[in-house]
Structure formats: C-alpha cells, structure tokens
Design a protein around this nucleic acid. Structure first.
Length: 473
RNA sequence: GGCACGGUAGCCAAGUGGUAAGGCAGGAGUCUGCAAAACUCUUAUACGUCGGUUCGAUUCCGACCCGUGCCUCCA
C-alpha cells in the first residue's frame, strides 16, 4: 500500500509506503492558545485530519501527535492583560479550540501534549545540545549555534537563498541582534532568561530561571511521544522557515537520527487576496460564521474544496457553494439509507467502523485522487459528484455494494450527515402556526402576509404535503 | 534583493502533448393555491501576455506582466 504526497524538502511527490503493523508516526504543529483560532488555522488541521482518516480507513496504526503551545510572548501578554494566570488564560483558549475541533469533526490526536507539561523534556534536549557543543549560554539564555549544524537550511533550501537581515521581523518587532546577545543573528533561542514582563511565568534550569523557546517544545515533544524518525510532519507553510528548519537542527543535532521522512505543508487561506491572520485582523472564526448561519460542516467542506498546496480564497460565494454541494451529498446519503432501511441516526456509529473495502467497484477514482494524487480533495469531490450524476438511482443490489464505499467516502472527508436541530423562537413558531391555519382554511391572502412577516424577521417557511417547517434565511 | 507558489467561464476549482472534470451561480421544466425545497434538463467556444519546440501546447521551454507567501517565534 502506498500514499503519494508532495514532500516540501524534496519538492516533489513521493510514495509513502504503508505497513499496517508498523506505527505510523505523524506530528502536526498545533495552535498557540492566545485567542480564537480562525478558519485559516483550521485549514491545516482539516487537511491533516483527512490524511489521518485515510490512514485509518486503510487500517494503518496511526500515532498522531498535535501539540498545544501554551507559553510564549503572546500567551504571557494575553494572561497579563486579562489579569489571569497563564494557566487560566491558556486553559480557556484551549477549551475553545477543542470545541471548534469537535464542531469541525476533527478526530482527536492520539496525544495532545502541552508545552508547559514537557519542560523537563525540553531541558533535557537543551542539555544534550549543550553537552555536544551545539548550544551556548549567554546571561541566562541558551542559543542554538547554527554554524555547528552543517546542513542547516535543507528544508527551506537556505543554501540557495540569501538571508536578508531586516529591521523588522514578520511580527513587526525589531530584529535587534544585540537583544539576546547571540553570536550570530541567525542563532535562535532554546531557552529564554527571565524578564520582568514574564511575571510569574518561569521555570528553573541549569542556566537560571526562564522559559523555553518556541522551537524547543516541538522537538522535545516529538521525541518524547514519537521517539525517532517521524513519517509525516505537517503544519502551515509559514512554519517552513524558521520553525521547522530549527526543529530539524535541534532534533538531529541532539539525537543523531533523521527527524522527519516527509514534510507536509498546507497553503494559506486568503481573504481578498491576502492571507488571513490575526495580525491583519481579517479573520473569520467558526463562531462568527455560525452567527451568519453557516454550519462548521460547511466551513470544513469549503476548506477541502481546494487543493491543500494552493492558496484558497475565502468568499461567501464559496461558502454558499459548499453548503449547496454538501446538501446534495446529504440527500444522496439519505436516499441510500432509506433504500437499505438504515436508520439515519445510526450513521455516526456506522461511520466510526468504516473501512476501505478491498475491492472498490464504484468509487475507486475518488480514493485514487486522495491516495495517489497528493491528497487531491477537489479532484476527489469531482469524482464523487460525477458518480452521483451517473447513478441518480440504484437498484437494491447496487445500493448494497455502494453503501460501504459511500461510508468510507464520508469518513475520509469527515462529513457526518445529521439532521439539523434548529431552535425556533416562540413568537416565530406562533406566527408560522397561524399562517398554517390560514392556509388550511383557504385564506391565502392572510397566509402570504404572514409568510412575508416571517421573512422580515429572518425566517423562511417551507410547505410540504403534510405540514411545514421553518428555517433561518 | 533572495527563495517559492499561483493566474482555467460570472464565482470557485480539477486536469491533459491532440481542442477541457466537478461544484456554485444563470436559464428551462416537473411539483406547488403561491412559493421554497427537491428532482430533471440546460447555457457558456474559460486555459495571463509574447515568443520557441512540435504535425499539433492550455499542458513542455524561455521571457515578460499581474497577484501572493516566506526571508528569525505567523497555521
């Protein structure tokens, strides 16, 4: 069994051989919990989720680690501004993040370590680097010495580029070479000496009180929870340099084994042609979209409607398209269930047990696009709609063979058709009931007026033979 | 300045050395008191520009234009 995926380091698609008995080790750089995650952040986690789902369908023994960064400049600042302890602050945002993950139907990682819970591992890693001459201490901080790492830059192809020293870094903070007294400006902090702004956030270390650097945590956590070489390490494209480059440098210098076989980087989500970011303030969250009646499932669909390596432009037209497309998939699923007398409510349970049938009769192209064509979700969705178009009606025998394949499709995409429960305010309910009475008694004029009144209040009435239902506009 | 990525119908978005999936929107119909939803059918001569290779290029090569990302703690 093989999976074809583009590898950032080699800049080409490579086959990943899957061996069901062997643990498949994958690590995804998780969120820094200092505010609401936006849907651009979630693009990364959704793509990673599709990958993990595919592996599970193939019965691969996946060990999936995704971290929580709960100590850095932004979390410390946020906690201070809210008069909270760092832990109170980050716990709140972690819960919010988990809530979003659940709504997006993201499978929970096997392990989700927090940076603050693995300080010992990080200190051990730093000590190892110190012992082997890869790091040096200056005034209570410890820095990684890039000049000691011969192949530094191999992921982002630094040897082919010139590093320009800018006055400002991407966080718009001064790149002050003297600030941390580094030997070279490119050296990065493994351990940061305590500063008054850090408040009560500090741990003891052989080099004095302080806190870990950003890159250190990921290397320490991968080593602790996954051991040696990872099969796939993923993250947003912006992490290629310096974060992932530094992770490689630390890990390989310390443990003397290759860090990662395959690097997976997910392109950014854009708004009006610019990347969605907290810095630019152009972000959408699951909550802000739900206020406009867009379900998280719709957002999820919109995020996989484009190929992960290509920037995806976020628009409401796109979201509407996703919603309509998703409804078609729901409707097809419902028909299939009805035909086979499967209780729609049982679908989540059935999906949990979904596996990829050995011989695909109907949806081979769908899985080929995902497995053999670099996780090509838009192509796969195209195949799915072509299938539905070609088979609007199935015989009972056909439906029986389609069903397991269909379940695998839903599982892979993380689509969970459910009947939406919408809470309807009492006054709306009352108006709708009144309209129904008018309609039944033949007073169409009054009925239409009431329909209009409901429309003005933001609700649509949909009649059918037996009755009516109401939904928000 | 360096390194990358992208430019396919109104909007998204696949893909291919031999004239281009799919979704949305648009149009028509069935249904309906009317609508909506659903279903069926359907439209458009869409591959950034200019050269080159080729029998043939949207696809390969080169140049250019436009847009975007990264270049020291951003997913």
């Amino acid at each position: 069994m093989e999976l074809n995926l583009f590898n950032t380091q080699s800049r080409q698609c490579e086959a990943i051989v899957l061996e069901p008995q062997k643990p498949f080790k994958t690590y995804c750089c998780g969120p820094t919990v200092y505010g609401p995650a936006h849907i651009g952040n979630f693009r990364t986690y959704v793509v990673q989720d599709v990958l993990v789902r595919l592996l599970k369908l193939l019965k691969v023994n996946v060990c999936y680690v995704r971290n929580i960064t709960d100590v850095d400049d932004k979390t410390i600042r946020g906690a201070r501004q809210n008069n909270q302890s760092l832990q109170e602050f980050t716990t709140y945002w972690t819960q919010r993040f988990h809530n979003d993950c659940e709504r997006l139907n993201l499978l929970p990682p096997t392990v989700e370590p927090k940076a603050t819970e693995t300080i010992d591992d990080q200190l051990a890693l730093i000590q190892l680097l110190m012992d082997n001459g890869y790091a040096y201490a200056r005034n209570g901080s410890v820095y990684f010495r890039i000049s000691a790492c011969k192949d530094y830059g191999k992921l982002s192809h630094l040897n082919e580029r010139e590093l320009q020293t800018q006055d400002l870094n991407s966080a718009e903070q001064a790149n002050d070479a003297d600030e941390y007294e580094r030997d070279q400006i490119a050296d990065f902090a493994l351990w940061k000496a305590y500063k008054p702004e850090d408040g009560t956030v500090a741990w003891n270390s052989p080099w004095g009180r302080g806190r870990p650097g950003w890159h250190t945590e990921c290397s320490a956590m991968t080593h602790r929870y996954l051991g040696g070489t990872l099969d796939v390490h993923s993250g947003g494209v912006d992490l290629v340099f310096p974060h992932h480059e530094n992770e490689i440098a630390q890990f390989e210098s310390a443990y003397k084994v290759p860090f990662v076989k395959h690097w997976l980087h997910i392109a950014h989500l854009r708004v009006n042609g610019q990347k969605m970011s907290k810095k630019l303030g152009n972000l959408y969250t699951l909550d802000s979209l739900q206020e406009q009646h867009y379900e998280p499932s719709t957002v999820r669909y919109a995020l996989i409607a484009g190929h992960y390596r290509k920037p995806l432009n976020f628009t409401f037209e796109n979201l509407n398209a996703a919603q309509s497309a998703l409804h078609k998939i729901y409707a097809y699923t419902q028909t299939l269930c009805k035909q086979l007398s499967v209780d729609f409510a049982n679908l989540p349970a059935l999906l949990q047990q979904a596996t990829l049938p050995d011989h695909l009769q109907w949806l081979q192209p769908f899985f080929d696009a995902l497995l053999h064509d670099d996780l090509n979700t838009p192509k796969a969705l195209g195949c799915l709609f072509s299938f539905m178009g070609q088979h609007p009606q199935l015989s009972l025998d056909e439906a029986k063979t389609v069903f397991p394949e269909w379940l695998a499709v839903l599982y892979a995409l993380g689509i969970q058709p459910v009947e939406q429960r919408i809470s309807i305010p009492a006054d709306i309910q009352e108006l709708a009931e009144k309209r129904w009475q008018c309609k039944c008694s033949g007073d169409y004029q009054a009925a239409d007026n009431l329909r209009k009144a409901l429309m003005d209040k933001g609700w649509r009435v949909l009649d059918n033979a037996q009755g009516y239902r109401i939904e928000p506009l």
